[in-house]
Design a protein around this nucleic acid. Structure first.
Lengths: 139, 139
DNA sequence: ACAAATGATACCAATTCAGTATCATTAAAC
DNA sequence: GTTTAATGATACTGAATTGGTATCATTTGT
């Protein structure tokens, strides 16, 4: 069970790199060279981010991708929602039927609580934050 | 992405029921009637719990399953470990290689933190707790 | 001996995840 | 205006996980 999938992870890398390039259009070719992410996979991923309004894209020679929003306004929860259909740690197995066991409802509330606190923390993680904290280290 | 799978959920239900029956051997037939869990699935699950030392089993006519540990000592984290291979929200994609991006390491630490707090909370949820809290409600 | 129970194990279908492949379209550069 | 470098759209594939089924062997009380 993973909290973030490879899609989300790769997206974070790409977005951090793009954030460092300002509004210049960066091609997939350049991103592949820098990030070592499989090219077709990265392409699909960037197209998705384009469709979601997180990236701007320009076609044709010299084209590429750039951020459509400020790094402060791109949050991990956005990416998780896009690539993983959101966070839902919980899922009641008896949807409309009567739950035959009170204890499982208690369990459900516990897990809801965990989910809430995870969401709150992920909400605070933006691309801007990741870049900022990353700079504190050497390299 | 689910924090607990159906296996774990079903196990919780079965364990709560068994906890209410003391040290008496309860057959799969009885559990199926009470919990409405598919019989072969429940069987396999109980056998697994037996092998893990959480249930005691007696074969032959009149046999069945009973708790091998006190309800206080059966924790959600145990079940998650058994059925879901533990909690690992995180997974570094570049195992031995050099990570080309500092930001992703920052991300990794954030997720580690979330994982830690989730684990701490799950660790406190025992079968005993679930029964206790469940009783506060009507039924 | 029979019936009722678990032990062990193999199998199957649906879903998700990670990744590939291809054709169409756009637009700068020559 | 042709070439070339780029994205848009979309279909496909393989592996792993999840949820569930089926079967045969073994044990044990009656």
């Amino acid at each position: 069970m993973k909290l973030i999938t490879r899609n989300t992870d790769y997206a974070v890398r790409a977005l951090c790199y793009l954030a460092g390039q300002g509004s210049a259009a960066v091609s997939v070719t350049e991103l592949v060279a820098r990030l070592r992410i499989p090219r077709p996979f990265l392409r699909k991923l960037l197209q998705t981010l384009g469709g979601e309004g997180i990236l701007r894209s320009t076609k044709g020679q010299g084209g590429g991708f750039s951020l459509a929003k400020s790094p402060e306004n791109i949050r991990l929860t956005d990416l998780i929602r896009i690539f993983q259909g959101g966070i839902q740690l919980n899922e009641c197995i008896f949807k409309r039927k009567i739950c035959p066991n009170r204890a499982t409802c208690v369990l459900k509330r516990e897990i809801d609580g965990i989910e809430q606190s995870a969401l709150q923390r992920l909400e605070k993680v933006s691309i801007a934050l990741l870049i900022r904290k990353g700079r504190h280290h050497d390299q």
